[in-house]
Design a binder for these strands. Structure first.
Lengths: 210, 210
DNA sequence: CGCTAATCTAGAACAAGTTTCAGACTTGAT
DNA sequence: ATCAAGTCTGAAACTTGTTCTAGATTAGCG
């Protein structure tokens, strides 16, 4: 009955209905345009009309794929996170302790973001500005981040305390990024904050190699 | 030469030019209207036209006092934070360790926010969405928060490590609030995160009473 | 008091996110 | 090949933050 089947965009989570090739292509064009515009001028430069035009899609269609600007930018972030995770996987961190490895990984990610500060601005602002209607997508980003951190820790089955520590690390990561993006903290400051919070890991993992 | 002298609103920081009585009254009406509307429907419910109308001020005047919606909401937060600090001061936390006292203080603040979740939503979203143009005001909020935490710790002159810990606690506090406000974390979860991050204090303060 | 500069007001105008709609186009099934 | 249902397009409309303007008010000063 449907034509190009249903929509509902997802990146790693092609849960609901599968997309037509042309739909997949559209989705990709949109995300590409979004990232491109964001790389220029950050959150404000991602204007829905421009995204639509750049990706050769009608405005209504754009809104069918991504029901709001925030949805679009969060999806863009998911997209970028995948790249990131792939990249990080290739060269695992060198640190001795779990805390060092996590800090190293986050700093590596941070340096990547520094290369595209405007893009980082757009994604992070969208992420923290997102309201309840975007919760599922934001949650997905959060889970992905958790995976990256656990990866760096090199744990099989983390304890509840360790999961709490990871949650706090994520909090710090997001908030520190924001203070950096809004010019209220220096890069060095962010580094210190990350290293400080990572100490929590050793605190919650008595069996860490020292 | 000027009439009602100059404007430039501030709360605890009447730095630049002092305000006329009528101006002070206007400013107060505006902040009151802002908090009232925010208490109803959160960030979205604070509509500049409505704030202007509620506070009996022309739209242009509103923008003269607060150059953007985010500025207005951040100022509203400063205002609320003062109350909060005053209230907290009266009954200092009971905990034995600094970590316990800080956690207790933050949880007390958290409970206050729970009583007006919409207001909390408006203020916190504004805070994290703020761009560079609002940095001074956001920074002021941050400083005020730092003071509250240091107060709870009961320290005279904190070490750099301790200040780092406080910074991380603030990061966690903000970010945890956001996850709670957007329905991605339960109240219990926030509590755990706060308690977890507060452990950093003991970690950085070897001389803590135990 | 009378002046002058600054402030305030009412309201129009503009910008960008979001919604809506009629009509053209695709798709999968018969 | 044809049809029904779902999609896409282009364009207009609507909402809310922000800016602008002309004229009325106000404050402080000589």
């Amino acid at each position: 009955m449907p034509a190009e089947s249903k929509v509902e965009a997802r990146s790693v989570r092609p849960s609901s209905p599968p997309l037509t090739e042309r739909q997949e292509a559209r989705r990709r064009r949109i995300l590409h345009a979004s990232a491109q515009l964001a790389s220029r001028g950050g959150f404000d430069a991602v204007q829905m009309r421009e995204v639509a035009e750049s990706s050769q899609v009608a405005l209504g269609t754009l809104y069918r794929y991504f029901p709001s600007k925030v949805h679009l930018l969060v999806a863009t972030m998911q997209d970028q996170l995948e790249h990131m995770h792939g990249t990080l996987r290739k060269k695992p961190p060198q640190g001795e302790t779990a805390a060092e490895r996590v800090a190293e990984t986050l700093m590596r990610a941070f340096r990547a973001l520094q290369r595209e500060p405007h893009l980082a601005d757009a994604m992070v602002r969208a992420l923290t500005f997102a309201d309840r209607s975007v919760s599922p997508e934001v949650d997905q980003v959060s889970r992905q981040t958790t995976v990256i951190i656990l990866d760096a820790m090199g744990l099989e089955d983390p304890s509840p305390e360790q999961l709490s520590a990871v949650r706090v690390i994520e909090h710090t990561w997001h908030s520190a990024l924001i203070t950096w993006l809004s010019g209220r903290a220096s890069i060095a400051q962010v580094k210190i904050d990350i290293e400080t919070v990572c100490r929590l890991i050793d605190l919650t993992d008595p069996g860490a190699s020292r």
